[in-house]
């Protein structure tokens, strides 16, 4: 239990997808002009990471890794290493899940779909979601830890985009040099925020 909590906290603050690895930046910059939209997208990222990371964990450990097919009991399959199909599998699972999520939300929660809808297709190409699965495979997590890692990374991303959106709403009223307005000053803001997050490295959990 302790390891699960520590993995969760670590992936929110220390291993933050945005400020430690700078992943999912395209959507991070594009959708952080307003807090409301940023909030919705953040929630969608939490859902996507919490589900796809453990899902890919299952696929990796029961189908793809070397010797993963041993459970089938067929000897010829026991030594097969399919890890070269990893990337293809992860992205298909992510894309399929997001498509499914979109359909479910559209059918049963139309009001949610109106706010969240346009962001859902963006998730399939969000580096942070794919990176969640890629990092998970490189680490010796079990299923529960992988879920905690996915959820934590999502929450970290959510925090990052909501706080950046809040800053950008405020900076509209500041006198920024004209060519620097918009994207330019946003990059500098992100750099400064990343320094803030660096201080979390000192945490021992």
């Amino acid at each position: 239990m302790q390891s699960i909590i520590s993995i969760f906290v670590k992936s929110v603050f220390v291993d933050n997808m945005i400020f430690a690895y700078f992943l999912g930046m395209c959507t991070f910059i594009a959708i952080s002009k307003e807090v409301k939209a940023a909030f919705s997208l953040g929630v969608a990222v939490i859902v996507a990471l919490t589900v796809t990371v453990p899902l890919n964990w299952i696929f990796y450990h029961y189908f793809l890794a070397e010797g993963a097919l041993a459970w089938t009991g067929i000897e010829a399959l026991a030594t097969i290493d399919l890890s070269f199909l990893g990337l293809l599998t992860y992205i298909s699972i992510i894309a399929a899940f997001i498509q499914l999520l979109e359909m479910i939300v559209e059918k049963y929660y139309p009001s949610l779909y109106n706010t969240l809808g346009i962001f859902l297709p963006l998730l399939a190409v969000n580096c942070a979601i794919l990176a969640g699965s890629l990092f998970m495979v490189g680490r010796p997590y079990n299923l529960a830890e992988a879920t905690a890692y996915g959820a934590g990374s999502g929450v970290g991303w959510f925090l990052a985009i909501t706080s950046l959106a809040a800053l950008r709403e405020k900076i509209k009223y500041s006198n920024v040099p004209a060519p620097l307005r918009g994207v330019g000053i946003t990059f500098i803001l992100i750099g400064l925020m990343a320094f803030g997050y660096l201080s979390f490295i000192g945490f021992t959990i």
Binding site: P179, R181, V183, F187, I188, I190, L198
Partner: peptide, 26 residues
Amino acid sequence: ILPAGACFVIGLVVWMQRARNGYREE
């Protein structure tokens, strides 16, 4: 060396490019 430093460099590159091209964003 830190990734955060790249944010500053890219921010400045964007600034320079836009100052030259005259592109504005409001």
